[in-house]
Computed example of a mutant assay.
Amino acid sequence: MKLFSRFFFAAVLTAVLSIPAAFAQQSDTELQASVQKALNNSSFKGVRVSVQKGEATLTGSVDLYDSKSRADKKATHVKGIVGVRNQIEVAGPDVPDAQLQDKLVKAVSWDRVGYRTTPFNAISVGVQNGVVTLGGYAWGPTDAASAVGLVENTKGVKDVVDNITVNPPSPMDDGIRQATYRAVYGFAMLNKYAIDPAKPIRIQVSGGHVTLYGAVDTQADKDAAGIRAKTVSGVFSVDNELQVANQPSEKK
Rank of each mutant, 00 (worst) to 15 (best):
K155V: 09
P20N: 07
K53I: 05
A22W: 06
K222C: 04
F120V: 12
K158P: 00
G149C: 09
N240I: 09
F187M: 00
A122E: 07
Y137T: 08
G149A: 05
F4G: 08
A107E: 03
G80I: 08
E152L: 00
L150A: 10
R182I: 14
F9G: 09
Y181G: 14
A56S: 02
K103F: 01
N191V: 12
V160L: 07
F44C: 00
A220Q: 12
K251G: 13
D66N: 14
V125Q: 12
S206D: 13
V49I: 04
S170Q: 06
L3Y: 11
V131S: 15
A245M: 14
L17P: 04
S249V: 13
L150N: 14
F9E: 15
K106D: 12
A11K: 04
K222D: 00
K53A: 14
G156N: 03
V16M: 10
E152S: 00
A22V: 11
V216T: 01
W139V: 11
V205K: 02
G80Q: 02
F9T: 15
A122P: 10
S67W: 01
G175W: 00
T142E: 13
T117S: 10
D143Q: 14
A224E: 12
N86L: 08
S61W: 08
Y115M: 12
K53C: 07
A215Q: 12
P96T: 00
T180H: 00
T76N: 02
G83P: 02
P171S: 10
R6N: 11
D239Y: 09
A194L: 01
Y137Q: 05
Y137K: 06
F236S: 13
P169D: 01
V125I: 12
R48E: 09
A194S: 06
T57E: 04
G114H: 02
A229V: 09
A98N: 13
K37M: 13
V49M: 07
S206C: 08
T154G: 04
D174Y: 06
V160Y: 13
K103Y: 00
K37P: 05
L17I: 11
Q36E: 12
D196S: 04
A21M: 10
A198M: 03
T165R: 13
P169Q: 06
A107S: 06
K37Y: 12
L17T: 10
Q36R: 07
D159P: 10
L190P: 03
V47A: 03
I19C: 11
N40A: 14
D66E: 14
L104S: 01
M1D: 06
T165S: 15
L100I: 04
E152D: 04
T218V: 02
Y137A: 06
Q247F: 01
A229G: 11
R182N: 12
R182V: 15
A91Y: 08
R177P: 07
V49D: 06
Q243N: 07
D63Q: 10
D162H: 05
V210E: 14
G135T: 01
E250W: 00
L190S: 01
K53L: 12
G186D: 09
A71W: 04
R112L: 05
V105I: 06
K252I: 14
A224I: 02
I203P: 03
A71R: 01
G208Y: 07
T29F: 12
Y213P: 12
Q243A: 10
